[in-house]
Amino acid sequence: MQTPRLNDETVRDLFSAYHDHELGRDEAEAVRAYLEANPELAGEYRAFCKMIDALGAMADGARSASGAHTAAPRAEVDLLAGVQSKLSRRSRGKFYNDRWSRNVGIVPLELIAVLVLIALIAAYFSMTSISVAPAPQGAVPAAR
């Protein structure tokens, strides 16, 4: 593509695309050469980049020099309880009507059910396996 004749204004209009590597090779090269020849505009471009870098630094996924994003902590927020409450109210109890369907932490309900079942089975077997000792011979029933 033929690169149009550049001046300060057209180069300024290309700052954004040049920064994001969205220009074609020839156009990018022309902008680079123009900035090299115009130190004042190059300073303006550096300030523009600094602003975008500052935006990146504000972002939770701060951009590393390689262009990759690193995970950074986001604002602490827990929306689940509020969402469940609103859904329960607006669905007139159709969804999230009981507290067990709500926020139960990180342990899934299925696991809780299995554990309760195991506990019940264990309790049953422990009760049936208790041996009843026979009454000693000659013992007289108390009621007599």
């Binding site: 986001r74 927020v77 929306l79 689940l80 969402v83 609103k86 859904l87 607006r90």
Partner: peptide, 28 residues
């Protein structure tokens, strides 16, 4: 997704209380 949604909404609105409410509406 709550952190991402809240982050986006907070940045758009610039107000934490509004952002929390709106982020909940997004999920609803």
């Amino acid at each position: 997704y709550q952190a991402r949604v809240f982050s986006l909404v907070h940045r758009m609105l610039g107000n934490r209380a509004e952002a929390e409410d709106l982020a909940q509406e997004v999920f609803i």
